[in-house]
């Protein structure tokens, strides 16, 4: 049996107000270590909301998210921040790099925030990541001196800097051209192949098809799951299915 890296149990996320709205409505999901899962669905279906819950950026109204077996529902915001820093790496649709910092400084930012490495080690690790993503020559450039694809690769390098177990990406290719999209997806695929867990939200069915598993969300619920290269299946006992795969 594969080791579960990320598990959602009965996740519910509601927006309370004059008109309440349920974004995520009772989702159970297990993602194995080293698995590449794509979350798809129409706009407003709750796929990004689910991703934010899985990455501990948001807290559920009901249910729990377990990161590497650790329940997180009762953790304080500070403890959740610590888990985000060390166990999760985020990539967003827009690069969200700090504009005044160079590529290398942006990549080393999470390492410096964690404070577990020496300056030299952080510098070397940052360069290593940028080199592996083909950005060695752009280490000292600021985001406004890079192309869209390069910025997104820097963002991926930043997500990887603390060697997180899980990478969550919210439409990382949404603002990229075809070539860059191919590059970024290839990188994410390589990350998963290297043993890390990758969960990606995407609109692109062709890219989703390259994931190990595709989870289709409709109205905040899992509508169907599709194993890589398989035909769509009804979404029943997804966690068990993922655990067995």
């Amino acid at each position: 049996m594969s080791e579960i890296a990320l598990q959602a149990v009965g996740l519910v996320r509601r927006i309370e107000g004059a008109i309440s709205h349920t974004l995520v409505n009772g989702i159970d999901l297990s993602v194995n270590k080293g698995e590449f899962v794509a979350i798809t669905g129409p706009s407003g279906s709750g796929k990004s909301s689910l991703l934010y819950l899985l990455g501990l950026l948001d807290a559920p109204n009901e249910g729990d998210v377990m990161i590497c077996g650790q329940p997180t529902a009762k953790l304080s915001e500070t403890e959740r921040a610590d888990i985000r820093l060390t166990k999760c790496g985020f990539v967003f649709q827009f690069h969200f790099l700090l504009p005044e910092f160079t590529s290398l400084q942006n990549v080393t930012l999470p390492m410096r925030a964690a404070g577990k490495m020496s300056e030299k080690e952080m510098h070397e690790r940052g360069l290593e990541l940028l080199t592996s993503l083909g950005l060695k020559d752009h280490a000292n450039k600021r985001p406004n001196q890079l192309s869209g694809g390069q910025r997104q690769r820097v963002a991926i390098a930043r997500a990887l800097s603390n060697r997180p177990e899980i990478i969550v990406a919210d439409e990382p290719t949404g603002a990229l051209d075809t070539t860059s999209t191919e590059q970024v997806f290839g990188i994410l695929r390589d990350i998963a192949d290297s043993g890390r867990t990758v969960v990606v939200v995407t609109h692109d069915p062709a890219l989703a098809a390259r994931a190990d598993r595709r989870v289709h969300i409709v109205d905040g619920k899992i509508h169907e799951t599709i194993q890589g290269g398989q035909a769509p299946e009804p979404a029943i006992a997804i966690g068990a299915t993922a655990a067995e795969s």
Partner: peptide, 16 residues
Amino acid sequence: RQDIAIMKSLGMREYS
């Protein structure tokens, strides 16, 4: 505000 959101999402504490 955007940078603050990103720093928080990366795991930097609110206090920091």
